[in-house]
């Protein structure tokens, strides 16, 4: 009995001292609590790229619902056209586009390019969002579907021409991952469908695989690269793969994208399947995209 009691006494003392000696670190306590809470939440990765376009093509980004993004893009002539053409600056083509965010996952856009007098429209839907925390998703994935209509005059007005012959379609899957705060990469398998092809032995479906990425060099500037590899046998004869490099420069509500590319067009079919400039020959074009966002519908106050 006495033994038991003495043991108990010892326990009680140890307990009392332990409690006394323990200096409660409030900061640590909150930190642990926070960490525990974070595990129970899903954190979606944001800002994989600065804007919805990488260079010519789409990036994984969507614009927020209720936002309109005005995009003005220019491509000048080739740099190797010489001093007479002022290294291409005399010869500009442009695309004016309006993109709208509908839901956090869906955006739509329309545009008009001076090159080949094209109209285009697209839908972009985010299927997967990269996340950490309660639900871990290593990648983001989007699907982009665009339709292009060329409004050039018929090359042969005497034969029977169909409106559908003016249409092309491009479908892309975009798989992206933000590896770190400054590095993001994406993969873009693409199929471009032509209702009417330029030459008899050209395929109606062009298949390409795009690779792209960005590396931030400062908080507001990043270097981007984009390459579309056309699968042999599913490409037009005499075309080259589109390869582009550029900078994203962000200033408040604007994003400026400056780039060097070997393609003239700014719609999927023109840069993926109809690029014919060669980097080795200096058939390079300087271009820029300017993006300006406007709030057209205020989000509801919570």
């Amino acid at each position: 009995m006495t033994q038991k009691l003495s043991l108990l006494a010892l326990f009680v003392f140890i307990f009392a001292f332990a409690a006394k000696a323990q200096d409660i670190d409030l900061n640590k306590m909150l930190e642990e609590e926070q960490a525990k809470e974070e595990k129970g939440k899903v954190h979606y990765t944001e800002a994989t790229f600065k804007t919805t376009r990488l260079i010519n093509g789409h990036s994984i980004e969507n614009i927020a619902p209720g936002i309109m993004d005005l995009k003005v893009s220019h491509r000048f002539g080739t740099l190797n056209s010489g001093a007479y053409e002022f290294f291409g600056l005399d010869n500009a083509s442009m695309r004016l586009g309006f993109d709208f965010g509908i839901t956090p996952r869906l955006m739509v856009g329309v545009g008009r390019s001076s090159y080949q007098k094209q109209f285009d429209g697209f839908l972009k839907y985010k299927i997967l969002r990269q996340s950490t925390g309660k639900r871990t998703m290593p990648i983001s994935m989007s699907v982009v579907s665009s339709t292009m209509v060329t409004s050039l005059k018929w090359s042969d007005p005497t034969r029977k021409n169909f409106f559908t012959s003016r249409m092309q379609f491009a479908h892309q899957l975009i798989i992206a991952r933000k590896f770190s705060e400054s590095t993001s990469l994406q993969l873009m398998p693409t199929i471009v469908h032509y209702n009417l092809v330029p030459k008899a032995n050209d395929p109606n479906d062009v298949i390409a695989i795009g690779f792209g990425g960005r590396q931030k060099i400062t908080k507001r500037i990043s270097i981007n690269a984009e390459y579309y590899f056309q699968v042999p046998g599913y490409k037009f004869s005499g075309t080259t793969d589109a390869l582009s490099f550029g900078f994203d420069i962000e200033t408040g509500g604007h994003v400026f994208q400056l780039h060097i590319t070997n393609s003239r067009g700014m719609t999927e079919r023109t840069f993926i399947s109809e690029t014919n400039g060669k980097w080795s020959k200096g058939d390079l074009l300087f271009g820029f995209n300017i993006s300006r966002v406007f709030t057209i519908k205020k989000p509801r106050k919570k």
């Binding site: 800002a47 927020a64 507001r220 509500g253 966002v293």
Partner: peptide, 13 residues
């Protein structure tokens, strides 16, 4: 914030 992009910049930049 005044727009979603502002929140993104607040966090990013």
């Amino acid at each position: 914030f005044n727009k979603p992009l502002q929140k993104e910049h607040f966090n990013e930049n």
